[in-house]
Amino acid sequence: MIKQHIKFAILLSLIIWVSIRYSSLYSVLGVKPDILLILLIRRSLHDPRPQISLAWGFSAGLIIDSIAGDVIGISSLTYSIVCFFVSFYKRASVYTPSYKRTLLYIYSISFSALLIYTVTASSIPFIKNLIFIIIPSAVYTMAAAVIFQTLKPTR
C-alpha cells in the first residue's frame, strides 16, 4: 500500500514539474489542459476511499498553488472536492459503465475549470471568460482525458 502511495507521489511530482516547466509545449492558442486533474480523477476512480483521494487532491492542489498558482487555495479547494466525490461515487457503485465514467469526467472537469478560472481570471468579464477560457480549457482537458484513457484504460 505504502509502495503504491510512494509511486503515485513520484508520478504526481513529475506531472507538476512538467505542467509548470513545459506546459507551453502543449498549449494551443494559450489554452492548456489540466493534466494534474486528469491524473487525480484516474486515481480516485481506482480508490473507493474518499478520505485518501481527498488528501491527494488537497496536497496536489496546495503544492501547485504554492509554486505557480495565481490564487493560493483555489486548486486545493477544487481538487479536494472533485477527488472526494469521484471516490464517493466509486464506492457507491459496484460497476461503472463507460458512459457513466465519461459523465464523471465531464462533470469533474467542467466544475474544476469553472471554479478555478472564475477566480483566477476575475479581471475578465464572465461571459468572455466562459467563451475564451473556461469552455476551451474544459474541452481540451476532456480531449486529453480521452487520449490518456485510450492509451491506458481505467477498469
Partner: peptide
C-alpha cells in the same frame, strides 16, 4: 461522518487561503 468532516476541513482551509491571499 468522518469523511465529511475531513472534506469540510479541507474546504474551509482552502477558502481561508483564498480569502487571505
Amino acid at each position: 461522518y468522518r469523511e465529511w468532516i475531513f472534506l469540510s476541513a479541507a474546504v474551509l482551509f482552502s477558502v481561508f487561503l483564498i480569502m487571505f491571499n
